[in-house]
């Protein structure tokens, strides 16, 4: 099979998984709506905090409410896309440690792609909606800005999911990385929703490497505000590097995978 044809096959497989997840979520319509509204409310609470904050302190290192809308909207979109399309990334450490990879290993599909896309978090739709609302609130519709927003959100999602896969892959070596994975999710979301300008040099370095929160919120949001070739190159490079690291870590780890052979189901 040629590489191009293989990519086409995998993409159509992914599309089928996503469609199934969406149809399953819509089966319980009231639950779907309440979770989406709940997440919108959750995000509104954080934006209300920033609104109150900037009323008292109008600028912090050059940052104001508009910048915060852009940053929060970008992080929410990247996170939302990630958990809707690859929902099992949030529980990958548990899936690995509880022999949950067994059913995927026996099927003729890429294991990582299959396990990640087999779960979907409904509340992520509320995050995506929050991102779109923030973007709409930021100003008059501009096709180029929306295009940049789409590309930046894709990078944000890739870096976020890759980071979760990297942390969860530690399970292959250390037995259980559930607590670490939980802390990593907390950390990356906490850092991604605060302006980069408040952090000093060494903290910024951490936020662009060890905990790549800068590539999930601040840098993609900057790119949406003003296009620069350098910004585009930075984002593309970050997405490729973190994706490659995640793939290498997971597949290297998979060689160490041992299972007690417990019967487990698929999905998240």
């Amino acid at each position: 099979m040629t590489t191009l044809r293989r990519i086409r096959v995998e993409l159509s497989f992914l599309a089928a998984l996503w469609k199934t997840n969406l149809l399953a979520a819509l089966e319980y319509r009231a639950s779907f709506i309440s979770q989406v509204l709940g997440m919108l409310l959750n995000n509104a609470a954080f934006l209300a905090f920033w609104l109150l904050f900037f009323q008292r302190f109008p600028k912090v290192n050059g940052w104001g409410m508009r910048d915060m809308l852009g940053l929060y909207g970008m992080t929410a979109t990247g996170f939302g896309l990630g958990v809707v399309l690859f929902g099992n990334a949030l529980s990958l450490a548990d899936i690995i440690s509880q022999n949950g990879l067994d059913p995927y290993l026996s099927l003729p599909r890429p294991v990582l792609l299959h396990v990640l896309a087999s779960g979907s978090r409904i509340s992520g739709w509320g995050d995506i909606l929050t991102g779109l609302l923030c973007m709409a609130l930021l100003g008059p519709p501009d096709a180029a800005a929306w295009l940049r927003y789409g590309a930046a959100a894709l990078v944000s999602m890739i870096v976020f999911i890759s980071f979760l896969v990297l942390v969860a892959s530690l399970t292959f070596w250390i037995g259980s990385a559930s607590a670490l994975s939980g802390s990593a999710i907390n950390a990356i979301l906490a850092f991604a929703t605060y302006p980069m300008s408040i952090f000093d040099g060494s903290a910024k370095l951490i936020l662009l490497t060890v905990i790549p929160a800068g590539f999930i919120g601040a840098l993609p949001a900057d790119f949406v505000r003003h296009y620069t070739g350098r910004g585009l190159a930075q984002l593309a490079a970050a997405a490729l590097v973190f994706l490659a690291l995640a793939l290498i870590a997971f597949h290297r780890g998979l060689r160490h995978y041992e299972s007690g052979g417990l019967a487990t189901g698929m999905g998240g």
Binding site: F57, V60, N61, N186, A187, A190, F191, Y194, I198, D200
Partner: peptide
């Protein structure tokens, strides 16, 4: 994690 972020935020503020 939260306090580390808050220290940076409130110092700048």
């Amino acid at each position: 994690i939260f306090m580390w972020v808050f220290i940076h935020l409130w110092r700048a503020t």
